[in-house]
Design a protein around this nucleic acid. Structure first.
Lengths: 175, 175
DNA sequence: CTAGATGCAAAAACTTTGCTCTCTG
DNA sequence: CAGAGAGCAAAGTTTTTGCATCTAG
């Protein structure tokens, strides 16, 4: 299929700086400092995990990744930090179903999501046609578009079978 | 734990609509029958509550409203029914954060939201062009569209300073 | 030095499930 | 009548909190 739409920027990790745990503050850490947040080691760690994530990690994911880098953080702190960052507008909370909240760094260019309702997998895509239509729709309502969010929920094409349905809990990992 | 009490959140008092006459099956009930679901009293009741809802009730809301009409239903049944209806495409699950899943009857057409970023006001709208495009986008990615969510953020007139201005209230509950 | 952070575990909040009894088709 | 559905409470998950103890600024 055409590549249009798919932006696989998966395991890219560290875009500009070497993962050297030195003093190169992650993008998110910078944002935190900008808003005057007290930067503790845990927050720096979590900020880094989020900056390097190319998917939509849920709290568990962030927690595990943080532990993998430096196990000096508790799940409660991850919850607290992630919530703080959301309030500060540094993170966006996304609910793709599956019962867990997922987070998306708000500094990433905007893209849309297609969620496979059976597996919970998330596909990111961008579409110029949609962008244009969004503009038109907003204008039609008398507004200037300044932001948008589009989420499509779909099911892999296949003969509609009464399959045992997908598990609600623990959906497949995002991507 | 037991004692779940009510954590009265922005109670959605939007249950105004021509009350369904005693025996006329609600729209959602009809949809259930159409899909060959076994119609029990509880399902009929839940279907009615959903048909009359003009907001996006969460399970608790549906449960309470159902009890108000006829207290012969358990929360477990509401969960099971709502999940069933979602699987049958009669309901759309909307996660607005806040930890609870909210439901939106798919029988009154998809509607989207345009949020005025300056006032926070939400305008609902529907658009066939978008519907069509969503279908196409999903198909293009190899999926059958089963649900969608579109939110546009716009500004009415004169642009305000590009600065965040004020972090308004908590992320959002819906209604 | 001190307001705010962290850890830990317990408490909440939210959903699902096992099992028995009921009721629809 | 058979098998799906309903009730209930217990179990499962995800998220929040109380409190004593640190620590960034």
């Amino acid at each position: 299929m055409t590549e249009r739409g798919f932006n696989h920027r998966m395991e890219s990790r560290t875009q500009a700086r070497p993962p050297t745990r030195g003093h190169s503050p992650s993008r998110i850490e910078e944002l935190c400092i900008e808003r005057g947040l007290k930067m503790t080691g845990q927050r720096r760690l979590i900020a880094r995990v989020l900056s390097e994530a190319e998917d939509h990690p849920d709290v568990e994911d962030v927690y595990r990744r943080a532990l993998a880098l430096d196990n000096k953080v508790s799940i409660a702190t991850v919850y607290r930090t992630v919530r703080l960052l959301e309030e500060k507008g540094i993170l966006e909370r996304r609910d793709f179903g599956g019962g867990r909240a997922r987070y998306d760094p708000a500094d990433r260019g905007h893209h849309h999501h297609l969620i496979d309702v059976d597996t919970g997998k998330v596909i990111e895509f961008a579409d110029p046609e949609f962008e244009a239509l969004a503009q038109i729709l907003a204008r039609r309502l008398g507004f200037t578009l300044v932001g948008q969010r589009l989420e499509l929920f779909g099911r892999r094409e296949e003969p509609v079978a009464p399959e045992p349905a997908a598990r609600r809990r623990k959906p497949g990992r995002d991507a």
